[in-house]
Amino acid sequence: MSSVSALQKALAAEHAAVYLYGVLGGRVSTYGDPSLAAALQDAYDAHRAARDALIDRVAAAGAHPAGAAAAYALPHGIDSAAGVRAAALGIERHCAATYFAQVAAVDGEDRRLLISALGDAAVRELSFGGAPQTFPGTA
């Protein structure tokens, strides 16, 4: 797999995360859960930053960054705070798994970016009910 392909796959995961966190944030405000709302906002901001960083890296490699889809399938059960929390945990696990799968396909600054992003996603899992794992990104 080429390094650009690996970056594009990571970018696709971040596009989805940004979209889904936008949806989840709107749901939580209804339930007046300030701590969850803050965690969702932080995650949304972090994924936007990660998306932008990946766009820059793909462009720096001379390729055209993949765009976001028009819409993404929403997780089930997001009509409650617990459901939103579980969906957010799922997003982070998906991102961590994507970074885990792609990290070895890139080198140098790109690899450092993916290593950092894998750790960021793993730490955010803790904000949404996740527990420390021995090998984040593999489950």
């Binding site: 070895a104 690899r111 290593i115 984040p136 990104g137």
Partner: peptide
């Protein structure tokens, strides 16, 4: 994280990157 950035074997790269993430979870 630095070791994952330096490793050559793809399996070792993934393993070390995951271990770095696990350590950040524990510290948090």
């Amino acid at each position: 994280a630095a070791a994952a950035a330096q490793a050559h074997d793809p399996r070792l790269v993934r393993l070390l990157a995951s271990m770095a993430a696990a350590q950040r979870q524990l510290l948090t």
